[in-house]
């Protein structure tokens, strides 16, 4: 359930010079400028690299319309947890310093092509985008905020799963967030889930799978159990495309795979159908 190490996928930022970015998937050398203007998508192989929550927001939300919500919520340490590397508090403080975030998700509201929406955007840089008490709280508060205003709710997931440093409290966030989604369903408020690389463990097994419409970015890793755990259990090798967005589309768990550059337009098209009438 807890997040596992993503093998063989180095972050693009670490493997480059000043001029070039090396695609972590096909090793193509790409001009930094082209990489940035291409939204960190490889022009050779269409690999969609991970991006931060603010980059994501800026791609989607009409400029000048964003208002952060539940910004006061930050990490707690309900277990007073320490592991071999020291206290969780220090680990969380380092993640905050590195990302400038207070938790693994950015929440707020804004407009997409003029349509008001509430949004939660997870960020893998913050402790692997793990689902914690604070993260679950922000998503729940924002879903309740969306319910009050009858605004469509959109979650972009990017997470290795539950944050084990918060133990059972993190597990319970799966139930808490899904209960908030159920309320949206009862009110007829649209909820769209976008699964980006990676969406695994407890996040895949809660709100990320429960969209009225589930969308994924190309080749995003999406699955419940870790690849290695499954291989050890069933003692056989898994197909190469196992747990990719394409595999999930084929098996009926997502509606569409949408390129990053087309995401805003796609969401806008869907939102037209979920308008209050």
């Amino acid at each position: 359930m807890a997040w596992f190490k993503m093998s063989g996928r180095k972050q693009a930022e670490t493997a480059d010079s000043d001029l070039w970015t090396i695609c972590p998937s096909c090793n193509a050398h790409i001009y930094k400028q082209e990489w940035e203007t291409g939204l960190k998508v490889c022009p050779k192989c269409n690999y969609h690299a991970r991006i931060s929550c603010t980059e994501r927001r800026d791609l989607l939300i009409d400029s000048g319309t964003w208002k952060e919500y539940a910004a006061h919520v930050t990490t707690s340490d309900p277990l007073d947890f320490s592991d071999a590397k020291g206290p969780y508090k220090e680990k969380a403080a380092a993640a905050k310093a590195k990302t400038g975030m207070k938790e693994s998700v950015l929440t707020g509201d804004g407009k997409i092509g003029g349509i008001p929406v509430s949004m939660a955007i997870m960020d893998f840089r913050f402790l692997g985008g793990s689902l914690s008490g604070g993260c679950g709280e922000k998503i729940t508060l924002t879903a309740e905020h969306a319910a009050r205003h009858r605004w469509p709710f959109i979650i972009f997931s990017a997470s290795g799963g539950a944050r084990m440093h918060e133990g059972i409290v993190s597990l319970m966030q799966m139930a808490k967030t899904c209960a908030a989604i159920a309320r949206l369903n009862n009110l007829g408020v649209p909820y769209i889930s976008v699964l980006t690389d990676p969406t695994t463990g407890g996040v895949s097994a809660s709100y990320a799978m429960m969209g009225d419409i589930n969308i994924a970015e190309p080749r995003a890793l999406i699955g419940f159990a870790g690849r290695r755990v499954i291989e050890q259990t069933i003692k056989q090798k898994l197909p190469d495309d196992f747990q990719t967005a394409e595999y999930l589309l084929e098996h009926g768990f997502i509606d569409h795979i949408v390129n990053r550059k087309d995401m805003k337009e796609f969401l806008h098209r869907v939102l037209q159908y979920g308008k209050r009438r």
Partner: peptide
């Protein structure tokens, strides 16, 4: 929950969610 190929293919995550 069972971690297996079939379980993933039939949507272990979706079923729990």
């Amino acid at each position: 929950a069972y971690p297996g190929l079939e379980a993933e293919a039939r949507g272990q995550a979706e079923a729990i969610a």
